Amino acid sequence: MKVDEKKTAAAAPAAGAAPANRRSPWLSFALRRLAGLGAVLVTLVTVTFLIVQMIPGDPARVLAGPDAGPAEIEQARVRLGLDQPLIQQFASYVGGLLRGDLGTSFATGEPVTAIITSRLPFTAELAFLAILVVLLVAVPLGMTIAIACRGGRRRRLSTGFTFGTSLAGAVPEYILGTLLVLVFAIMLGVLPAAGAETPTALILPVLAVAVAPICTLARIVRRETATVLAQDYMRTARGKRLPGLTLYTRHALPNLLTSTLTLGGLILAHMLGGTIIVESVFAWPGLGTRVVEAILNRDYPVIQGVVLTLGVIATLLNLLIDVLLGVLDPRTLTGKADRP
């Protein structure tokens, strides 16, 4: 007995010490995400630096002008730092980023930071409204179709939904934007075709950006809702004859949001690219219009700055989605939640 008591006493501190050494799930989550964020930022910085190296043509010749002689081109090369070794150029680029200096536009001589600061609010407004429309339309639509077609009912509705969302989701943003302008601005004349002078000018660009993500996310929500509705706890809840609103919003919606947001985060981040394209179609004064001008003029600092800014925004958006998932389902903090 004494031997057993000694073993028990010796084992007790070790058992009691485990909770003290156990790391908080949020701390582990934060460390993992910070490591991932650091890796993404390093990749973004490297890629944006190499843009100038990979784009055909000589940046010094572009800066010096088409009529410049060899001496002027060499002066431009020295001014850009292109006469330095590649490692030194990269160190100078990173140093500028740490100081908040993204360079100067070749075309206008403006600081790239000032250009982005003046254009970013327009892009952010368009992207935010498009994301809001996607969430407000896709989630209820997908849930409604899944509920209406539960158990193999209403096959025509199910087929029509699948066909319609597949067809609409396959149309590129710029083609859809052109069609919207043709119908609502030219034929009907009810909405402006371009510009940002009135609030109604946002309607067509938002629709052009949002339609494809709505179709994709609605199909995801429908699939996840159908999976949730087949669970035993949902059968029990229906057996208690709970009101439909309570049944689906309180019991079904929270359980399908985890997987929906996991895939939805990728869709919403992808929408930034669609926003850039649509801005050019509607002459919206955001980053998209400016980066197209920069590409045509080979204005490399502006291209670098815009690509880096959009990459950081997409990364932060995915980080926000991960935090929301952690709040909604703490199992995702440790990676133990079932993910699609």
Rank of each mutant, 00 (worst) to 15 (best):
T236W: 10
L256M: 15
R250H: 15
V209F: 09
D232N: 14
I214H: 04
L253P: 02
L266I: 12
L256P: 00
A218V: 04
V209P: 01
A252I: 02
T249K: 03
T225S: 12
G239D: 11
L263K: 04
T262Q: 08
E224C: 01
N255I: 06
H251Y: 15
P243K: 07
R238W: 13
G239F: 07
R241Q: 14
R241E: 14
I267H: 04
T249D: 00
V228I: 15
G244V: 03
L257W: 07
M234C: 02
L263H: 05
A210H: 05
L245Y: 10
T225W: 12
T236V: 11
T216A: 13
R250I: 02
R222F: 08
I267E: 15
L229C: 10
G239M: 10
R219E: 09
I214G: 01
M234L: 14
R241I: 03
I214E: 06
L242N: 02
A212R: 11
T225Q: 08
E224F: 09
R250S: 13
R235K: 10
L257C: 07
L245C: 00
L217R: 05
L229K: 05
T236K: 05
V209M: 11
R223A: 15
L245H: 12
L253N: 09
G244R: 14
T260R: 04
A226C: 01
G265L: 07
Q231P: 00
L229S: 04
R223N: 14
G265W: 07
L245K: 10
L253Y: 09
T260G: 02
L217G: 01
H251T: 03
R223K: 04
V211W: 08
L268A: 09
T262E: 04
K240N: 07
T258E: 07
P243V: 02
V211C: 06
T227Y: 03
Q231F: 01
G244Q: 10
Y248F: 13
E224T: 05
R238M: 15
G244S: 13
V228H: 05
L217I: 12
L217Y: 11
Y248R: 06
L242P: 00
G239Q: 11
V211H: 06
T236F: 14
T258R: 13
L256E: 03
L268M: 14
I220Y: 14
G244N: 08
I267A: 11
D232Y: 09
A237D: 03
A252K: 05
T225L: 08
L217H: 05
T258A: 14
L266T: 07
T236I: 10
T227E: 15
T258V: 11
A210S: 15
Q231A: 14
A226M: 14
R241F: 10
L253Q: 09
T225P: 01
R250M: 07
T258M: 14
L268F: 11
L256V: 12
T262N: 12
